[in-house]
């Protein structure tokens, strides 16, 4: 994984200006939403049980997890393209796990901005050494859950071509559920957040932990992460048997 990361970074930094610009712009983009929340909280001090500082934890954890996924496993977003255009061939002839190779095959420069923004939001609104350490662990779990979630749905392309539209819609729902406090959602959405679209395990439970750490929460997150990663490998490997390659001329970029 670190080998791929090193080479991905070399590729991403081929154009230093573009790399730095996308990192900085992403930090500004995320920060612009703070103004929106400050305005809302100026009208109402508490939403459900959450204050502005608490809501910023949702943002910090979502950005951090999103950043981790797209820095280390951005190749997952290319799974539908790789399947439809026969680009998995190059990975299938290599002596490493195909999903690991694919997942680590690219890096999204703007995700570095997301990761930095997550830390900035945490430091500004909820700083403590304990929070910083716990946050650093939790975004790894969040990133892994988000990555595995995408693998499961993007792997549908093995069976149904163009199913990436469906997968992308689910990804948007995942992000929307992650960015807002759980109290504003209906019961149905809450059930979804702890099952088919697991933002609950990736962000909500980690928020509970940062507010009030409980070991059982940590256990839920660890067990769910192991479960969804196992499922992701199972679904992807099962899908590989349906892979039909193609003879389209193309290049890896």
């Amino acid at each position: 994984m670190f080998l791929s990361f090193k080479y991905n970074l070399m590729r991403a930094m081929e154009n230093n200006v573009a790399f730095m610009t996308s990192v900085i712009m992403m930090i500004f983009n995320n920060a612009s939403f703070i103004i929106q929340w400050i305005t809302i909280f100026s009208l109402k001090e508490v939403i459900g049980t959450y204050t502005l500082n608490d809501v910023m934890l949702f943002w910090a954890l979502s950005s951090g997890s999103f950043g981790i996924t797209h820095i280390f496993f951005n190749g997952i977003t290319r799974i539908p393209d790789y399947i439809e255009h026969g680009k998995l061939d190059a990975y299938l002839t290599m002596p490493k796990n195909v999903l690991c190779q694919v997942a680590t095959s690219s890096l999204e420069p703007s995700a570095v901005g997301d990761l930095l923004y997550g830390y900035i939001a945490l430091i500004i609104f909820n700083f403590s050494i304990k929070n910083l350490l716990l946050y650093s662990i939790l975004i790894i779990f969040g990133g892994l859950i988000y990555a595995a979630f995408m693998v499961v749905y993007y792997s549908l392309t093995f069976k149904y071509i163009r199913s990436n539209y469906f997968a992308e819609s689910l990804r948007d729902v995942f992000l929307n559920l992650s960015l807002y406090p759980d109290v504003i959602f209906s019961k149905v959405l809450k059930i979804l957040a702890f099952s088919l679209i697991p933002s609950g395990f990736a962000v909500w439970i980690p928020v509970y932990m940062l507010l009030d750490f409980k070991l059982k929460y940590m256990l839920y997150v660890i067990l769910f992460t192991i479960g969804i990663i196992t499922l992701a490998f199972y679904v992807f490997n099962k899908g590989l048997k349906n892979y039909s390659s193609s003879n389209l001329m193309d290049a890896r970029s």
């Binding site: 590729r11 081929e14 002839t93 193309d250 290049a251 970029s253």
Partner: peptide, 11 residues
């Protein structure tokens, strides 16, 4: 594969 590149084009 003459019709498919395995090399990373930005490296």
């Amino acid at each position: 594969f003459g019709q498919k590149e395995q090399l990373w084009i930005h490296l």
